[in-house]
Design a protein around this nucleic acid. Structure first.
Lengths: 250, 250
DNA sequence: CGCGAAGTTGATCGGACTCAACGCCCGTGG
DNA sequence: CCACGGGCGTTGAGTCCGATCAACTTCGCG
C-alpha cells in the first residue's frame, strides 16, 4: 500500500473514532457561543447537547469529513478555517466554500457527505453524533431554528460566491477574495486588517476562484505592481490600498 | 417617468399589497405538501400557519421580491420556476439560483432581501408574513427543522452550482444545465424528459453560467451539430443523446 | 548539499469576449 | 393589408484574456 493511502486510512480511523485528542465540551468559554447554531439554547438543553459532542482538534491539512462517507457526524467550527472540496471526474479539486468560526459542517438530513471537509489552519470543532444531533433539533425548536439561521447564512455566502465567480476577470476575483479574507481576519467585518496571512496555497486560491494557478501568480504580480498590495514571503501580503482593492472587488 | 419604470412601480405596489389574485391556503391539495418546509407540521400547527399566509400567483417575468427591500415576507414555491438575481455595480444580471417547487425564498433572519426574485414561468407561491413566520418557527420545532432541512437542500444545490461554474468550458456548462433542467422537468429525477421547454432566455442562461450570450448561442449550435440535441423554435429543444450529454456535464 | 514542493515567469495557443451585421418573430400603426 | 420597428437570437471577424507547456527560482527540510 502506498504511503499516502496509508495516511488517509489512518486519518479516517482517527476521525471515525473521534480522535484521542478530544475533550469534553466547555460551553462556558466557547468563542462562538453567541453566533453558532446552538447559541440560543438554555442551560438544560445545552447540557443535553454536551452529552453527545466532543471538542476535537485538527492540524492543518487534515481531512475532517471524506466525500461519500456515511454522514455520521456534524460539527460547529470553533476556531480556524475549513474548506469544502468538490472533485470532478478527473479528481481536480474545486473549493465550493470556506467555513469560518461558528460555521456548521456535515450534511444533515442526507445519507452521505457530498463534499470533503479539510482544515486550512489548525482547527477546533464541536463534533457531534449526527443522528442524535438531528434528534435534538427535532425536539428543541431553539436548536432547529439556530440551525436554520446558520444554514441561511451559509446559503447567502454560497450565493454571493456564485455571483463573484461568474463573469469578471481573474484580477477582480482575486481582489474580492483578498478583501473577504481581510474582513474575516479582522476583529469585526467593518475593520479589516492590512497584514494578511493567507490560509490558502496558490493552488487552493485557483481552485476556489476557478482560474489556474499561474494566472493567480500573475495577478498577484499585477496587484503588487499597481501598489495595491505587497507580498512578504509566500503566504503573507500587506494591503496598501484597501479602497481601490474593494473597488476592484465590486 | 419612462414606461418601464412605471411598470416596476406598479409591480412593487401589487406585491406589497399581496396582490388581489391571492386566495386562502388550501393545504389539502398542496402539490409540495410532502417536501416543503412545512411538511411535517401537524393539523393544529398547519391551521396556525394558514392564518398568516396567502396563496399568490405571479405571471412570467414578474418580480416577487426586490433586492434591498425590507425583508417583510417569505414564501414556499408551489408551482413554476423562479430565479434569484444578483446585480453587479453596473447592473449586469447574474443568476445565483433557480428555485424549483417546494423551494423556499425570502431572507429569514436578515433585515433586507439580498437578491431579486423573479418568476421564470407562471408561478404560485405560499406567501407569508416574515416576522410571524419566524415567530412560528421559533415556537414549532417541526417548522424550524423543516426550514433547516430546506435550507440545507438549497445549500447543497448552491455549492453544486459553484462546482459546476468554476473551471470547465462553456459547452460542458451548457450540457450540465440542460441535464439539470431535463431532470427537473421530468416526473422524477431518474426519469428526465427528452422534450424540453427552456424556461430561460439565452441572456438568462448566460447570466447563470457566467459566459456571454453569443457563446451560449454557439454552443447550442455545436451540441446540435454533434447530434446531442435538436432545436425546435427558440425555446424548445429535443435531447437526442442524454447519455453523451450527461457525460459532458460530468 | 541535494532534493522536492511550491511559486514565479515567459512563450505560445486557443477559447471566449467584443463588436457588428443579419434573420426571425411579433406587435403596432398607418 | 403591409410597413415599420424592436426584441431576441444567430452568425461572422478580430482581439484579448487566460490556459497550457516549459524553464527557472525560492523555500523548506532531510
Amino acid at each position: 500500500m502506498p504511503r499516502i493511502e496509508q495516511d488517509i486510512v489512518q486519518k479516517r480511523c482517527y476521525s471515525g473514532l473521534m480522535r484521542s485528542e478530544s475533550h469534553a465540551l466547555q460551553c462556558e468559554n466557547c468563542p462562538v457561543r453567541d453566533r453558532a447554531a446552538c447559541a440560543s439554547l438554555d442551560d438544560e438543553q445545552r447540557a443535553q447537547l454536551r452529552t453527545i459532542g466532543r471538542d476535537v482538534q485538527y492540524a492543518t491539512g487534515e481531512t475532517i469529513f471524506h466525500a461519500d462517507d456515511a454522514a455520521a457526524r456534524c460539527a460547529t467550527l470553533l476556531e480556524g478555517l475549513l474548506k469544502l472540496v468538490d472533485r470532478d471526474s478527473e479528481g481536480v479539486e474545486r473549493i465550493v466554500a470556506l467555513i469560518h468560526p461558528a460555521g456548521f459542517v456535515g450534511e444533515l438530513f442526507a445519507p452521505f457527505e457530498r463534499f470533503e471537509v479539510v482544515a486550512l489552519t489548525p482547527a477546533r470543532l464541536c463534533m457531534f453524533d449526527r443522528p442524535r444531533y438531528e434528534d435534538m433539533a427535532s425536539r428543541y425548536s431553539e436548536l432547529a431554528s439556530g440551525l436554520a439561521r446558520r444554514a441561511m447564512v451559509h446559503l447567502e455566502e454560497a450565493r454571493a460566491l456564485i455571483g463573484m465567480i461568474g463573469r469578471r476577470g481573474a484580477k477582480e476575483k482575486l481582489a474580492a477574495l483578498l478583501v473577504e479574507l481581510a474582513r474575516a481576519a479582522g476583529p469585526s467585518p467593518c475593520k479589516p486588517i492590512d497584514r494578511l496571512d493567507l490560509p490558502l496555497s496558490r493552488e487552493e486560491i485557483a481552485a476556489l476562484l476557478g482560474v489556474n494557478i499561474e494566472t493567480i501568480s500573475r495577478q498577484f504580480g499585477v496587484l503588487e505592481r499597481e501598489g495595491l498590495i505587497e507580498r512578504q514571503g509566500l503566504r503573507t501580503i500587506i494591503i496598501h490600498d484597501m479602497q481601490r482593492l474593494s473597488a476592484l472587488a465590486d
